[in-house]
Every structure is written in C-alpha cells, then in structure tokens.
Design a protein around this nucleic acid. Structure first.
Length: 234
DNA sequence: CCAGACGTTGTT
DNA sequence: GTCTGG
DNA sequence: CCAGACGTTGTT
DNA sequence: GTCTGG
C-alpha cells in the first residue's frame, strides 16, 4: 500500500520535473505527506499539456453524503478499480499523476515497525498512477480528491511488504493521462511497471513518524543493524 | 419494491 | 449514482 | 500509513 | 481493540 510519502523538492523543481504549464504548486517541500492532506497532482489540460493542482488525498465518491468516506479511500487496488463503484468512473475519465520523490513502507523488525524510505536511485521525481474525483457538498462547496493506485510489490519491496504504489515510468505518463475514456480491458497496458533496479531503499531513524514531524531530518539514515547489513539498503 | 452498501490494508 | 441483497 | 482518542451532564 | 483525523 502507500500511506505516507515525500516530495522534498521546491515548487519550481516539481514544475520542471513534470514539464507542467502554469504556476508552480503553492506548497513547500514535504517529507511526511499524509492522507486527507492537500497533495500535488498532475492532470492533462484541454490543450494536451500538464497542469499541477492541489487535491485532497483520499477519494470522495460523487455519491458520498459524508466526505469522511474519502478518509479511507487513499488507495485503489489495480486488480479491481475498473469495476468498483467508488473508482470506475474516475478510472474511465479522471486519471492523474500523484507527484512524489519517495514513499514509506514499514517493515517488521522484531516486534516493531520500522519505516523504510523508497526513492529513485538517482533522485528526481516519482509519479504514482492516480484517480481523481469532484465532490459537491449540500452547501455547494466542491472538493477535488484523489487516490493512489496500488499493486503487488516488486522484487525490491517484496522483500518486506506485499503491496506498493503503481509508479509510472516517464514513458507511461502521457498515456495514463490521455483523456480518452478507458475500458477495463485497457488498464493492464496502461500500468507500466517501474524497474525495481531504479529504486533504492533507506531505513529511517525516526521511530515516531508523527504527522507533525516535517523536514529532511526524517530521512536521516538509521545506524547499521546488529549482525550485518542489508545489501540493498543504501 | 426498498434498504443499504459502495474501500483498502493488515492482522487474526 | 448504481448495484446487490432481502 | 501513524497518532491519538475512545464520554456525559450540568454549570461557569 | 477499533475508529477517526491528519
């Protein structure tokens, strides 16, 4: 799954990395992005370019009476999203990229959970396959919200966790964003896997990854574990 | 027909 | 809104 | 995902 | 333990 991630780039860097038009995102670098918060999302414009927007993380279905329903719809399983009432319309017509530069998964060490930060080997941006939706409240207020598509863990992450976000490589982004309505049968071809060898792991020192904690210090490397290292942890 | 669900993950 | 279960 | 709450009444 | 909020 993907329930916590980072985007520690400046707004200008984010805009350039996505080759997006329009203003840069109005949000500082982040190292502890949590569900229900405003996140940075790329969508396609009517002219075929990309634009960055802020959306609430946790998709609120159009039919929801209580927007809190979105609090738990932070992920959409790739295996079922094309059929699920909460996601199928968004899959057909409202696909997006959720912009990150790393994400956390937790591995069990003894009885405890230890955060691991997964990031591109050479830095830079990661784009998660996402879906988005517009919700209108009874008072006329509208909320745009989004969810991150998940899939089975790849060879790297599968060593300690069984799910992960779908990370689209650069060459798959435009096709995911293309506004053409998509059928369920097209999904598998749209979700191009990101090569595991282009990702690296880093164990994080921080044991209490509180939502209040922010800053690059969250990513300070942990001290080496007893009894030898982990060759895939940088 | 109406009522109620509609989702994911992890853990048991 | 739309589908499923009773 | 993790962190933090988890309850009521009446009175000020 | 389980749910809600961030």
């Amino acid at each position: 799954m993907c329930g916590r991630y980072t985007l520690g780039m400046t707004p200008a860097e984010v805009l350039a990395a996505l080759r997006a038009e329009g203003p840069p995102p109005d949000q500082p670098p982040r190292w502890n992005v949590a569900p229900t918060q405003a996140v940075i999302v790329a969508v396609i414009t009517n002219e075929g370019g990309r634009r960055l927007r802020h959306m609430r993380w946790g998709l609120i279905p159009r039919w929801a009476k209580d927007p809190a329903i979105g609090n738990r719809l932070i992920n959409a399983r790739a295996e079922t999203l094309a059929e699920k009432p909460s996601f199928r319309d968004a899959y057909r017509k409202r696909r997006c990229l959720i912009v990150a530069d790393g994400f956390y998964e937790w591995r069990k060490v003894g009885g405890r959970k230890e955060p691991v930060w997964i990031h591109p080997v050479d830095g830079g941006v990661l784009t998660f396959a996402g879906l988005w939706e517009t919700w209108k409240g009874p008072d006329g207020a509208t909320v745009e919200s989004c969810t991150i598509v998940t899939t089975e863990a790849n060879a790297l992450i599968g060593t300690f966790h069984h799910r992960m976000p779908v990370i689209l490589p650069e060459e798959a982004r435009d096709r995911w964003l293309d506004p053409a309505p998509r059928e369920p049968s097209e999904l598998a071809d749209l979700l191009v896997p990101f090569p595991p060898e282009r990702l690296a792991l880093r164990t994080v020192t921080t044991r209490v990854n509180s939502p209040a904690r922010e800053g690059p210090d969250l990513l300070d490397p942990a001290p080496p574990a007893e009894g030898g290292g982990d060759s895939i942890t940088e």
